[in-house]
Computed example of a mutant assay.
Amino acid sequence: MGDKLSKKVISATFATVSFILLYGIIVGIFSSSKEEMFFIIIIFFFALLGNFIYAIPISFLCDALTKYFTKFRFLMSAILHIFFAWITSLGIFAISCAVLFFLMEEWQKRDKLRHLHKKYIAFNGIVLIIIVVSSVYFSFKWVELTEEKTNDYYLIPKGYVGEITVLYNIKNTPPPKRMGDYKVIEINELGYGMTSLPESEGIIENKYLYIDSNGKKEKINDNCVHIGPSGSISGGDGSEFIFSTIKVTDIGCGDEFISSGRMYLENDSLEIEEILQREGLVGDDW
């Protein structure tokens, strides 16, 4: 038992260090920000906990479940290691650690595997690659299918450019309309809207459309929309108003506008304080 445990400690250490090195190299190539480096420290901490506290017991379980397999022990063990990583919902992070852990486990058994035919080893290797790729793919698909989506349907007056503010959880507003799976948020000529609904959370899959006085709609190019910050503000009487902002433009659309929201025209939109006072949600002396 002591020898088996020491080997699994080696596998856990290898998986943790190798994963962090690989992740660090990828981050170093595509980004060098301080935030990313801090994130690596956090990832290292969770990888360490996962590999020692979760992966080692799971590996003992996999050994017990596959000890009676002979010909397909390698593949069954690989599938089990990856499956138990997949169910953690940590995606490619957990799957990568599981594969590295499993490979080190098998490497430490190499003396017992010398008798295996090269074709058998090559077959196992190819199938392992297929299993890993499939598990990563289905991990992303599972997140895509299960994670909440915002699904807000913005109707913005034709020709409006500038910042748009939406206030949530506002009582005595008209019942919210729906457009299929989307919640309609109507924006007025002054660039703001109010809804009794709470702020949507999840993957942003909103639709933004201009609407003219005749009700004709025109989709706004995604390159002309900047997702701004959300926040809350106190009403002074203990009430709290939750809001979110976006910006739309018809000049200077592109990646820069999507990321920064920099406007090239004068922005006459109202501040959140002005909106609250205009709607009578706070007093004039607030």
Results as ranks from 00 to 15, higher is better:
167 L>H: 08
176 P>M: 08
167 L>R: 09
140 F>A: 10
131 I>N: 00
131 I>A: 00
145 L>F: 12
175 P>H: 09
150 T>L: 03
149 K>G: 03
135 S>E: 07
132 V>Q: 05
153 Y>P: 05
134 S>T: 13
168 Y>V: 06
145 L>H: 13
175 P>M: 10
150 T>D: 07
142 W>D: 15
166 V>K: 00
131 I>Q: 01
166 V>Y: 11
140 F>Q: 05
158 K>S: 15
164 I>Q: 04
143 V>S: 15
169 N>I: 00
152 D>L: 11
168 Y>P: 02
145 L>E: 13
164 I>W: 09
169 N>P: 08
132 V>D: 02
146 T>Q: 10
174 P>C: 10
160 Y>E: 03
137 Y>L: 14
172 N>D: 15
147 E>M: 08
149 K>P: 08
155 L>A: 04
158 K>I: 03
129 I>N: 01
129 I>M: 11
131 I>F: 05
168 Y>G: 05
170 I>S: 07
160 Y>H: 06
154 Y>K: 00
159 G>H: 03
135 S>V: 09
167 L>N: 09
170 I>K: 03
140 F>Y: 15
174 P>S: 01
174 P>I: 05
147 E>P: 00
171 K>C: 02
149 K>C: 07
149 K>F: 08
151 N>Q: 11
174 P>Q: 06
131 I>G: 00
163 E>H: 04
150 T>H: 04
134 S>P: 00
136 V>A: 13
167 L>D: 07
157 P>H: 08
